[in-house]
Simulated assay, not measured.
Amino acid sequence: MKKNGVLVLSALGCIAGPALAQSSVTIYGVMDAPVEYVNNVARGVPTVVNNQLVSQPGGSRLSVASAGLSSPRWGLRGQEDLGAGLSAVFVLEGGFGVDSGVMTSNRLFGRQAFVGLQGPYGRLTFGRQYTSIFDGLSNFTPTRYAVLYEPIAWQLGVNYRSDNTIKYLGNFGPLKAAAHFTFGAGAGAVGFTPLGNGGAGETAGNFRDNAGYGASLTYLGGSVGATVVYDEWRPAVTTGQPGTVRKYGAALSYEIGTVKAMAGYRWNRSSFANGNTFVRDDYWWAGLTYRVTPALGLSLGYYYADIKEARVGPTAPGTKPANPWQVTFVADYDLSKRTDVYVTTAYARNAGLNFDSTPISFATGYIPTAGQKGMYGLAIGVRHKF
């Protein structure tokens, strides 16, 4: 829904003189509410006892989930024409759960909050925004980063949305380039606890704490697509002692009519400040999407991680967990251009859904109960975009 900038900001109680200069302001959002069944899910994260993770009890869960194919959100997007092909742009975006109406973080605009300039040679923005690896792989994921069920945090890293970031985006015909530098991400990283300096990383004498950078180059021409990505982040649990999380990867896609096939690979090594490996894995995925009719779309994804080594702490012994894999299927039917209904289901082995597992990740709330090697999920939902 588009409105004059003064009217939209007035409705939000934010009238100010500079708002009169806006060429346009758009208020937008997504509402998504599924009913979900999951089995073998624990009631909480494991506890660490003698360098071993002890799983919590649990069982099956039936609930209205807080997110479905999309994370519920609302936002403001604005642009002002400055002349000579130059524009000022901004985005403010916050997330919430449809099941409760509660914000998904303690931030009003925890998803995105940035401002910048856009011109013939690209866009330069400043603030909280997605990293380059997110942009580079967005066209090569089987279910388009669906919250239910795609291992987004495993694939991209928990820092895929970062504070204090400078980012460049450029479109040159079929080529799209992205690059970013983060002065400090941590406290607002997805599913991650606060780090040294509160996650800000902007402390005198500790410039490297929680800083990160990355780039991606993507080709989308006709029926063929390809991308290469790189991402590095230096989380500091203790001020002045950052670890290292380094990822690189590549993906390909090919379309024939209404069928699109894709496959990708992502290398990762995450290490503690003392140099010991937290997680070293090779992650692979493949998928198919098929537009059966103009209204009905099907998606199928397969995900596999070859975990070389993992530790629960910087001085714990290294282990070789069983390799997790997952199959995901989505059937999505458009009732209109803005409203759809869907069924999505997934089965994960040697991990919880979305690769929530022990001793690796507890980012999305699908942690398996003790002794369980598999987890199944099924959700039926409705989504509306405005």
Rank of each mutant, 00 (worst) to 15 (best):
Thr238Ile: 06
Ala348Trp: 00
Tyr347Lys: 07
Phe329Glu: 03
Gly222Leu: 06
Arg349Ala: 10
Pro235Gln: 09
Arg280Tyr: 11
Val343Ser: 10
Ile307Thr: 15
Gly240Tyr: 09
Tyr248Ala: 05
Tyr283Leu: 04
Ala348Pro: 00
Ala251Asp: 02
Tyr347His: 06
Lys260Ala: 04
Asp306Glu: 06
Ser270Asn: 10
Tyr333Asn: 13
Gly275Tyr: 06
Asn323Tyr: 03
Val228Asp: 12
Gly301Met: 00
Gly275Glu: 04
Ala263Trp: 02
Val312Arg: 06
Trp267Val: 14
Ala263Ile: 01
Gly297Lys: 08
Ile307Glu: 14
Gln326Asn: 01
Pro294Ser: 10
Gln326Phe: 01
Leu296Ala: 14
Thr345Asp: 03
Ala346Lys: 00
Val343Trp: 10
Thr244His: 11
Thr319Met: 15
Ser223Pro: 09
Val229His: 10
Thr227Asp: 11
Thr319Val: 15
Gly275Met: 05
Leu288Ser: 08
Asn268Gly: 11
Leu288Arg: 09
Ala348Leu: 00
Asp334Gln: 12
Gly352Trp: 04
Lys260Glu: 05
Leu296His: 13
Met262Asn: 06
Gly352Glu: 02
Ala305Ile: 14
Asp231Cys: 12
Leu335Glu: 08
Leu300Asp: 03
Trp284Arg: 05
Ser299Arg: 12
Val341Glu: 05
Ala351Trp: 04
Asp306Lys: 07
Pro294Gly: 09
Gly352Asp: 02
Thr238Leu: 09
Ala261Val: 08
Gly301Arg: 01
Leu298Pro: 02
Ala286Pro: 00
Pro317Cys: 12
Gly352Lys: 04
Gly225Gln: 13
Asp332Ala: 04
Pro317Trp: 11
Thr289Tyr: 04
Tyr265Thr: 06
Tyr303Leu: 00
Pro294Leu: 05
Pro314Gly: 00
Arg349Phe: 09
Pro314Ser: 00
Thr319Glu: 15
Asp281Pro: 08
Ala348Glu: 01
Gly240Leu: 01
Thr227Met: 10
Ala226Arg: 13
Tyr347Ala: 05
Arg234Met: 12
Glu232Phe: 13
Asp281Trp: 10
Arg269Gln: 14
Arg266Met: 13
Ala322Asp: 13
Leu220Trp: 14
Ala263Tyr: 01
Ala273Val: 08
Thr319Pro: 14
Leu288Ala: 12
Thr315Glu: 05
Ala250Ile: 09
Tyr290Arg: 07
Leu220Arg: 15
Gly313Asp: 07
Thr227Tyr: 12
Gly275Asn: 03
Tyr248Val: 00
Val343Asp: 03
Pro317Arg: 12
Val228Phe: 14
Ala331Glu: 06
Tyr304Gln: 02
Ala351His: 07
Asn274Ile: 04
Ala226Pro: 10
Val327Leu: 11
Leu300Tyr: 06
Val327Gly: 06
Tyr290Pro: 01
Asn354Thr: 06
Thr345Trp: 03
Val330Ile: 07
Val330Arg: 05
Asn268Val: 15
Arg234Val: 05
Gly287Gln: 00
Pro324Ile: 08
Pro317Lys: 13
Asp231Arg: 11
Ala346Thr: 02
Ala346Ile: 01
Lys260Asn: 07
Gly275Arg: 05
Pro242Arg: 10
Asp334Arg: 14
Pro321Ser: 15
Val259Gln: 11
